[in-house]
Computed example of a mutant assay.
Amino acid sequence: MSKQTLQKLPLETSGFFREVLEGLTTAVLWVNHEQKITFMNVAAGEIFQTSPSRVMGMHWEKMMPDLIESLDQAKEKKVTIHEYVIEQKDLFKVRVSCTISPYDLGTEKGWLFELFNTERHHRIVEEDERWHQYEAGNLLVRTLAHEVKNPLAGILGATQLLQRRYKPEDKANDFLEIISKEVQRLKNLVDRMLGPKQSSEKELHNVHELIRYVLQIVEGEKPNNVYVKLDYDPSIPEVMIDFEAMVQAILNLIKNAIQAMEQFGGMLTIKTRVEHKFTLGTQTYPLVALISITDEGEGIPPEVFDSIFYPMVSSKKEGSGLGLPVAQNVLRQHDGLIVAESEPGKTTFNVYLPLKQKER
């Protein structure tokens, strides 16, 4: 439909063209010469989380503050603003690119706003980059762990042979016992660095049952000043998982959240949702289960945020730096992913799990 054709149309667009606009996945708004919104399609309503009837006649700046200094800049030509952030009602933020074009409907002058959601593109690029970084670091640590494991086994075996030569009351046996315990401790550390082994024992489980089980485990160590809020989507179907491995992954995330709030307390919020046509890595899944774990702690320091899924990296003084890499490894074994978001007072770990009814 050309601009000339549009100019011949009355302000109230025909049913056919309205249906076309409503069917677009691109968010479209039309603003009249008084800079008031007179049309908004369904895609725009989804981005702003509102209905067209609520915004009709509203000044566009109430919807998009600080988008552009003045619409006069777009009087003669198109203007595109990249990386504009829209804060939705549920406090989620969406990044968009907005193109403003001078556009007349009938005899009335105005502007056409087109908003393209770039959040998904940014997320895919960031996930891909972080996963490659994580894989590189993980490969290095696994290689070193394998190299260390063999000498440790030799030291432990030789120590046990020496212990047989001494009586329990001998002084030398005390030192051998220390060596044995320390070698065993290092062996356990190496096993944790290698992460859980790939398991083929996957069955259908309810994600809410998984969360309930983990919350039972941490109940005894949860401080009194930490409260739990559950926000579940009961429509989530069962997901194919290795239950024990996923317990370890979710347990690591929830423990981290609780530890982040030990000093000042706060709310631990666990939310579940279903995402449609969601891309993980290079594959798009029809349905993906989302488990969001949010704490009100101090947040992750910016200097370590990009490295938190590397082994041996921790923002805690006594942290081993293995909890998050192990959890990420478990999710990758399930074709899923963990994505972190953090700012002072709010840190969220989003766990994405493809909803598969059976293993390939």
Score class of each variant (00 low, 15 high):
102 P>S: 07
98 C>W: 05
86 I>Q: 03
116 F>P: 01
124 I>H: 13
91 L>Q: 11
106 G>C: 07
104 D>G: 12
119 E>Y: 05
129 E>W: 10
129 E>K: 15
121 H>C: 01
89 K>Y: 00
90 D>I: 06
113 F>K: 09
136 A>H: 11
125 V>Q: 02
118 T>H: 00
95 R>N: 07
87 E>F: 01
107 T>K: 11
86 I>D: 01
102 P>K: 03
93 K>G: 03
87 E>M: 08
136 A>M: 09
113 F>G: 01
92 F>N: 01
115 L>V: 02
132 H>M: 14
113 F>C: 08
118 T>N: 01
136 A>Q: 12
87 E>K: 12
95 R>A: 08
104 D>S: 13
128 D>H: 13
95 R>M: 04
109 K>C: 04
133 Q>H: 14
124 I>S: 12
133 Q>N: 14
91 L>W: 06
135 E>W: 14
127 E>T: 06
86 I>W: 03
124 I>A: 14
133 Q>L: 14
124 I>K: 09
88 Q>K: 15
88 Q>T: 03
108 E>V: 15
89 K>I: 07
90 D>H: 03
110 G>Y: 05
131 W>Y: 11
93 K>H: 08
111 W>H: 14
121 H>G: 06
92 F>E: 08
108 E>S: 13
118 T>F: 00
118 T>A: 00
100 I>T: 07
91 L>T: 02
132 H>T: 15
108 E>D: 12
126 E>L: 06
118 T>V: 13
87 E>Q: 09
110 G>A: 05
112 L>M: 12
95 R>S: 06
103 Y>M: 10
90 D>V: 05
103 Y>N: 06
89 K>L: 10
93 K>C: 08
124 I>W: 11
127 E>G: 15
119 E>I: 05
125 V>H: 00
115 L>C: 01
130 R>I: 02
97 S>Q: 13
135 E>T: 01
109 K>T: 08
101 S>D: 12
108 E>W: 03
110 G>S: 07
129 E>D: 15
134 Y>V: 11
133 Q>T: 13
127 E>K: 03
135 E>H: 13
101 S>N: 12
120 R>T: 05
103 Y>A: 12
101 S>I: 13
107 T>M: 09
121 H>M: 03
89 K>F: 01
132 H>E: 13
95 R>F: 12
120 R>V: 04
99 T>C: 09
88 Q>L: 08
118 T>I: 13
98 C>Q: 07
126 E>C: 05
108 E>Y: 03
109 K>S: 11
105 L>E: 07
93 K>E: 10
119 E>K: 08
86 I>F: 11
120 R>H: 04
111 W>A: 09
114 E>R: 08
109 K>Y: 05
135 E>S: 09
103 Y>H: 08
116 F>H: 13
104 D>Q: 15
96 V>A: 04
134 Y>Q: 14
136 A>C: 05
122 H>L: 15
117 N>A: 09
127 E>V: 04
104 D>H: 14
97 S>L: 07
94 V>E: 10
112 L>P: 05
97 S>W: 04
95 R>V: 09
112 L>Q: 08
122 H>P: 00
131 W>A: 08
133 Q>I: 12
136 A>G: 01
109 K>M: 08
